[in-house]
Nucleic acid binder design. Structure first.
Lengths: 109, 109
DNA sequence: GCGCATACTTACCCTTCCGTCAGTACCTGA
DNA sequence: TCAGGTACTGACGGAAGGGTAAGTATGCGC
């Protein structure tokens, strides 16, 4: 493993993974339960969602809170670091939205 | 293949790939020859560099210009779209730089 | 005592991604 | 004539990432 060569390099490592951008986006509006996230992020499986959430949690981007009740309840929310990351992602989302048509067109597969 | 669910989704698809962020960053200061890029981006192999450049070219992020001379000369530069993408990446780079220490610390492997 | 809801966990497999390495084509200068 | 510089190309294999499907624990209501 080499050291990160620039901030972008580090950031790309954090948000890398098929579902991470969508998780971050979904949590933008506040805490969500596991099941809510699964329904919100169409196409994701339970295994992948948990895996990506755990990775974000270990990076201190996402906070996980367990409510000891039955049926179980677990809430996921953005940490301060996660919120600042989301802020930094806004211009990128805007860029993607502005060029959505051409990006869809040049997409492979 | 599903349609992009948001701009961020689309943008992540464009910059996805092990070397794309570093390529974009290297081209920030102007056109570069293939060999210059290879030397600038330490660790990349010729095959991977070409592959990623071709993908960026097909997305109209990077422009490829061949100079018919010997030895061959090929210059890569950012298109207008590429420049706007780079602008949108600046906040993300800043975020990464600001949190570099903690990100290095929570890194796996 | 049985199904249901929630939030996971695990085993297995398959595809995609990436790296290694060898080879191509062209002209130049020694 | 032969090494050298430049910009590729392609075969092969391993590692990483992601998908499928089945199973776990807990207590509640019927």
């Amino acid at each position: 493993m080499r050291a990160y060569t620039c901030g972008l390099d580090a950031a790309a490592d954090v948000i890398g993974g098929k579902w991470k951008p969508r998780i971050l986006w979904a949590l933008h509006h506040g805490p969500m339960r596991f099941g809510e996230l699964r329904r919100e992020i169409s196409g994701v499986t339970e295994k992948m969602l948990i895996q990506q959430l755990r990775e974000l949690e270990s990076r201190d981007i996402v906070h996980r809170e367990v409510f000891h009740q039955v049926p179980p309840k677990v809430e996921y929310s953005l940490t301060e670091l996660g919120r600042s990351l989301n802020e930094a992602l806004i211009p990128l989302d805007t860029w993607g939205s502005e060029h959505l048509t051409e990006l869809e067109a040049s997409r492979v597969r």
